[in-house]
Design a protein around this nucleic acid. Structure first.
Lengths: 132, 132
DNA sequence: TTGCTAGTTTATAATGGTTCTAAATAAGTG
DNA sequence: CACTTATTTAGAACCATTATAAACTAGCAA
């Protein structure tokens, strides 16, 4: 299994559940956005055994902390995650509530001119809201 | 009262509660960011009578819809609002969970090169996360 | 293999922000 | 004043997320 090493290297035990969640998240043709609920459905349809909701939350948070997932800052009652952890941005279609990746090259360089004393920039995220 | 006209013009009846909330939100030296909970506290300390939490929610949403308030896209368990409705962006200090305004001139022009068929851009919001 | 230890999973309860409900109240209008 | 419609309100309901604590499992050393 290709994810065993990856997990072990980041200090996470490669449990059956985590490996199965890895498959659902990362054995895909393209990256995707999801809420915990959507991920739960996806897991249900691809995996025979049950994985508890608590484990899904735990795993997603563990993966996010390790940098395998990114949270997308957006105002919604549910939290959105992205399996695309490269530096990029998002369109958010307000009508369909759908996220669309915006490559860095589609946005151009963002140069933050202001500095805050004693703080450094961890990330810069652009959200472009779309309407009809 | 200077807010009576403003409310009436946008189709909102100028009730006592709404006028009081206007004072708390807009009779300030500078704009500010708030959660509903913080606003509730601020109201409690500035107003003699009680305004129910449901009314605060109703009013904030009504004001947002009319463009008197902006929601700030950020991943938090609570929704953040901004009384600064001009086109601008935010720093978010992860340690203190504090928002800081970032003027448009501090970010520079953002030119979204990609177009989505049949959609137009409603807003562009930049969130710059800060760490120590 | 066998224990041991720390990490993980799990069902379920608890939490907490937000929305809903339905009755009381207040504003606008003729 | 009478009537209609909007608004306020307390409290219940909702629902995503987190906490709990017991059962289980991986890793490791003897």
């Amino acid at each position: 299994m290709k994810y065993i090493e990856k997990l072990r290297n980041s200090g996470l035990r490669p449990t059956k559940q985590r490996l199965q969640i890895c498959e659902v998240l990362f054995d895909t043709e393209s990256t995707f956005h999801f809420t915990i609920n959507q991920l739960e459905q996806r897991i249900k349809s691809k995996i025979d055994n049950k994985i508890s909701l608590a484990t899904i939350y735990n795993t997603v948070h563990a993966f996010e902390k390790k940098g395998y997932l990114k949270q997308i800052p957006i105002n919604s009652n549910q939290t959105y995650f992205d399996t695309n952890v490269t530096d990029h941005h998002h369109f958010y279609d307000l009508k369909n509530e759908k996220l669309i990746d915006l490559e860095n090259s589609d946005v151009g360089p963002i140069n933050i001119k202001r500095k805050i004393n004693g703080k450094k920039i961890k990330s810069i995220e652009v959200l472009v809201k779309l309407e009809d």
